[in-house]
Structure formats: C-alpha cells, structure tokens
Design a protein around this nucleic acid. Structure first.
Length: 193
DNA sequence: TTTGCGATTCGG
DNA sequence: CGAATCGCAAAG
C-alpha cells in the first residue's frame, strides 16, 4: 500500500488515523488532515543529495517512521514510502485534534522525537502506528505548495482536508480560528474509513 | 573543523 | 519580522 508513488500515497493518507501509545501507557488517536510529499528527485527532499545518516530510513522499506530534528527545537514526523531502496516520505503536518496543528507542534504534543525514528508504523503494538483507510473524495481535499521551503516550490504536493480547523499554514480566504472540530461533511468522510 | 542554514513556532 | 536553538551536511 505504501510502496507506491509518494504523491499518490500522500493524498490517500489524509483521513488515516495516527495512533500513539505513550511510555506511561496513555493512548491517543486522531485523523491525519494535512500532509506533504517529498521524493528523491525533489530538491527539498532530505534524500535529494543521496543517502546520509539522517535520512537513512527513507531509503528503507515503506511503512516506517522518519523523524528528524529541525530548527534546534522541533521534531517532524514522516511516513516512509516507495519500495525498499527508493527514498520517499510524507510529512505529517496536522491531525484533527487540539494541539496538533503544524508538524512541530504535533510532535511536541504527542511526545514524538528521534527516539521513534525507524519505528514500524504498521505495528499496532508499538509506540506509534497508523490505522484505517483513506479519503478519496476530492471534494473534501485541497492542494497547495508545500510550506516553508526555499526550493521545490513549484511542486504542489501539500494536501489537506478542506474544512478541518486544525490544518496549519495559509488557508482559504478569511481563515478561521482553528479551534472547532471538522465540519460535518469532512467528519463524516473521516468516520467512514 | 568550521560555517550557514533549515520540511518551525511564537512573540513583538 | 526576528529570535530561539542546534544538528546536519557542504565547504574549507
């Protein structure tokens, strides 16, 4: 499923449920509502210059977590894609739940750091994993340039649930406060996964 | 080794 | 718009 073109998978990942089991046993889960795709031939991708220690997991099999540290204080979570040997990843930018708007905040809130780099995201007995299907309804999905890049801005590889109030960054005209739950329409789609 | 900067966020 | 804050990777 994840061993396919990153951009395709990214779009389909919207609506999947990210689940977290904290060290103390606490469990949390929420739908993914914003993602960005990064591929080998993409200048903004960590794997663009080849394999390095940091992006090693991106070159491995799909379904594993690629967590990196950025700006001296934040962590970002990615889902590795593409067949083993081909780098590719999807940055998880927001979950449909309070405190998880933005890749850095999401990781801070759910206590995700580099110690989770390389964990199997398809293992529901682990600390972090994915469940559920995906959204295919174009009507509830929006697209845009990726956020915070100085290269690769020509690639429209950011996908987000149109009406989720937890999506980060630039939004549609008259951006609203991000404190309400997703609208009924999106909520319904997310529920039928 | 050194250096410049980054897939961010928050405050002024 | 700039500070915070530090690991990474390209350059020296």
């Amino acid at each position: 499923m994840l061993a396919r073109p990153t951009v395709t998978v990214a779009r389909e990942l919207l609506g999947a449920t990210l689940c977290r089991r904290l060290p103390d046993g606490t469990m949390t889960a929420a739908p993914i509502v914003e993602v960005e795709a990064y591929t080998q031939d993409d200048p903004a991708c960590h794997a663009f210059r080849g394999l390095t220690e940091r992006c090693r997991v991106m070159f491995g099999p799909p379904g594993f977590a690629y967590v990196y540290f950025i700006y001296g204080m934040y962590n970002c979570l990615n889902v590795v894609t593409e067949p083993d040997g081909v780098p590719g990843a999807i940055l998880i930018r927001a979950l449909d739940i309070e405190g998880c708007t933005g890749p850095g905040k999401l990781c801070k809130t759910w206590q995700i750091d580099r110690s989770l780099n390389g964990v199997d995201l398809l293992d529901s007995t682990g600390p972090l994993w994915l469940e559920g299907g995906h959204v295919t309804d174009d009507e509830v999905i929006a697209t845009s340039e990726r956020i915070g890049l100085n290269v690769g801005q020509d690639r429209i590889w950011r996908f987000y649930a149109k009406d989720s109030d937890f999506v980060s960054g630039p939004r549609r005209l008259g951006g609203r406060k991000q404190t309400r739950p997703a609208t009924e329409k999106v909520a319904k789609v997310l529920k039928n996964l």
